[in-house]
């Protein structure tokens, strides 16, 4: 299939909403991600059946069922692999991956590296709340070292992981950070991520109102629009990502790497392959 012909504003955000009601806590940032996603899809005017949303396990990964797109709610940590297979097999479909900081950076960490490196045309939205919500508040790879939890009394003492730096070093073609307190901006980041060919990584700071009740207010205060415009220079982006405060919002890097999309050479009759064996 080829490019989908679409009319601008042919779709409303509500066209991307399913009848399934979210189980997320009221106040959770993930509700805003869902709204942002719907707005982004409407702006892109993608027919819902041409979009697939793939996820793993965790609060964030409940997202696909709340959309009216095709969805796959798979196993913990493997959403990127599943999405890669789907996109390579069906390049005509827009594939969005929804994940969280535990699903994406801990159990799914290896796939994150290789998805960035492979640069398949995917949009990877990670709802980062620096905690495991569905298993009652254990520390994740992005949790602060002194955050006290039942499984890590007094804190882990381990430095958090910087997913944006890792994405850049691993070859992601688009890197952005948003805060769910600003739905419009999150939607804009998703739109740009989808429009940019290759692997697009969007970290959305998405507060957990149940296990991190400080986050909502705190992040409202500390997040800020990036002071400098996006760059396509990985060296500049690296310095910027290494030195920023983790609350710098916007498109932080957009490169020019060609996406990975193996193309079949031909569509010959399989029977012709018997020449491989015939003596």
């Amino acid at each position: 299939m080829n490019m989908i012909q679409t009319q601008p504003h042919a779709y409303k955000p509500a066209d991307y909403k399913s009848a399934v009601k979210p189980v997320w806590c009221p106040g959770c940032g993930d509700h805003s991600v869902l709204v942002s996603f719907q707005r982004a899809m409407a702006e892109l005017a993608l027919p819902p059946e041409q979009v697939a949303v793939v996820s793993g396990i965790g609060c964030s990964s409940r997202l696909p069922a709340y959309t009216n797109c095709y969805g796959f709610h798979g196993v913990h940590g493997r959403s990127l692999a599943l999405a890669t297979g789907l996109k390579v097999a069906r390049p005509d479909i827009t594939v969005i991956v929804a994940s969280g900081d535990g699903d994406g950076f801990s159990i799914g960490g290896n796939h994150f590296l290789h998805a960035c490196r492979r640069n398949v045309d995917l949009t990877y939205i990670v709802m980062d709340n620096r905690i495991y919500g569905m298993t009652k508040g254990q520390p994740s790879p992005t949790t602060e070292p002194d955050w006290d939890t039942a499984i890590s009394p007094g804190g882990t003492g381990v430095s958090p992981f910087n997913p944006l730096v890792i994405a850049l070093a691993s070859g992601a073609n688009f890197i952005a950070r948003g805060f769910t307190g600003d739905v419009g901006s999150c939607a804009r980041l998703i739109v740009e991520a989808v429009r940019t060919p290759g692997f697009s990584f969007v970290q959305l700071l998405s507060p957990c109102v149940t296990f991190r009740d400080d986050q909502q207010k705190e992040w409202k205060k500390v997040t800020h629009e990036a002071m400098v415009p996006e760059t396509d220079d990985p060296g500049r982006a690296a310095r910027r990502l290494m030195s920023d405060d983790g609350f710098n919002l916007g498109i932080l890097f957009r490169g020019h790497r060609a996406p990975y999309q193996p193309k079949p050479l031909a569509d010959l009759d399989v029977a012709r392959l018997e020449a491989e064996f015939a003596l």
Partner: peptide
């Protein structure tokens, strides 16, 4: 007519409650 400054391009509309401002026991 098309919305001008208000669309997904802008932050939240002036009349919509912030999704982060609610609580299940509010």
């Amino acid at each position: 007519g098309r919305p001008a400054s208000f669309s997904w391009l802008a932050p939240e509309g002036p009349e919509a409650i912030d999704l982060g401002d609610v609580h299940y026991k509010m």
